[in-house]
Simulated scan of single mutants.
Amino acid sequence: MARIVIDMDGVMADLTQHYIDWYEERTGERISRESLNGVPETQGFPKEGIVPQFLHTPGFFRTAPVIPGSQEVIKKLMEQHEVFIVSAAVEFPQSLSEKIEWLGEHFPFISWKHIVFCGLKTIVEADYMIDDYDKNLRFFKGEPLLFSAPHNVGHELYKDYRRMNSWQDVADYFAQLEEPVRLHQAAS
């Protein structure tokens, strides 16, 4: 049984689509997802400064859409592995309760015992980390798996990571492993 840690924002919760939808609701202007490829997260919107404010707006994290396939694949991974959801949520304190509620609604099969909110993810030790940011994967001692998001597409910083373009890619990756890398003993 391998230990897998999974990021929330950009991996389970589709913040890119949420930014696009909230931006359109507030400005009347629709931005294409493709136009955000290779652009730092929260940038690439014509009216500067609006999107970063969303991260501090009550209800933003609570109402994010679920990335397709994440629920089914995570549930399946939990049958064979020790899975933890790890989010650097303390940067946005109002997000803590919203993320707990969001997980309870969309991932009710994940116990509170398998949810970790932290600041830096350098403290995290596991066999695999699925994340959309180099800053979280770079210092990880296990196998880093990059989940594709517009901000990491086509960026030189991300070229050496094993890329997961969808949750089907994640399912296929773990299904093809004869013996997953195990750096840690699963807790009993």
Rank of each mutant, 00 (worst) to 15 (best):
R26C: 03
V153S: 09
V90L: 14
L145S: 03
L36C: 08
Q17P: 00
K159Y: 03
E25V: 00
I100M: 09
V124D: 03
A89K: 15
W102D: 00
I123Y: 14
V66Q: 02
P68V: 01
R162Y: 13
E79L: 14
F45D: 08
L120D: 15
R3N: 08
G154C: 10
N37A: 13
F109S: 07
Q17C: 03
Q94T: 07
T27D: 04
M12N: 07
K113V: 00
L146S: 07
Y23F: 10
A126Q: 02
I67A: 05
E72W: 02
V51K: 05
V66L: 12
F117N: 09
C118Q: 07
R182L: 05
Q176L: 10
S148Q: 13
A64H: 05
H81F: 10
L96E: 10
D160C: 04
P93L: 02
P65M: 12
R182H: 14
D127H: 07
I4N: 02
K47C: 02
P52R: 12
Y19C: 06
E34Q: 13
F45Q: 08
R3M: 12
M12R: 00
Q168Y: 12
V116S: 07
F109P: 05
Q71T: 14
V90G: 04
E156A: 13
H81V: 09
Y23G: 00
Y19W: 11
E179A: 15
F92D: 01
V73W: 00
Q176R: 15
F54C: 03
V73C: 01
A88T: 11
A88K: 14
E105T: 15
D134V: 11
P65C: 09
I100Y: 11
S70H: 04
F84K: 01
G44I: 10
I115M: 04
V66A: 03
W102R: 00
E24M: 02
A175Y: 04
F107K: 06
A126R: 02
I115Y: 00
F61T: 01
V5R: 01
L55D: 06
G10S: 06
N37I: 08
D14R: 06
G69S: 04
I85R: 02
T122A: 04
V116T: 09
L77W: 06
G38Y: 07
D160W: 07
F139T: 12
G142V: 09
H81Y: 13
L120R: 15
E79T: 14
E101A: 15
E178K: 12
P40K: 09
D132H: 10
E34Y: 02
E29Q: 13
W167S: 08
Y128R: 02
Y158S: 00
F45R: 03
Y158F: 12
V11A: 04
K99N: 00
P65G: 09
D127Q: 05
I130Y: 08
D14I: 13
S35G: 08
V83H: 05
A175W: 02
D7M: 03
A126T: 04
H114E: 10
V73H: 01
H184K: 14
G119S: 13
V90S: 14
G38D: 05
D7G: 03
E82H: 07
L120C: 13
M78H: 05
A175K: 14
V66G: 01
L15T: 14
P46V: 01
F60R: 03
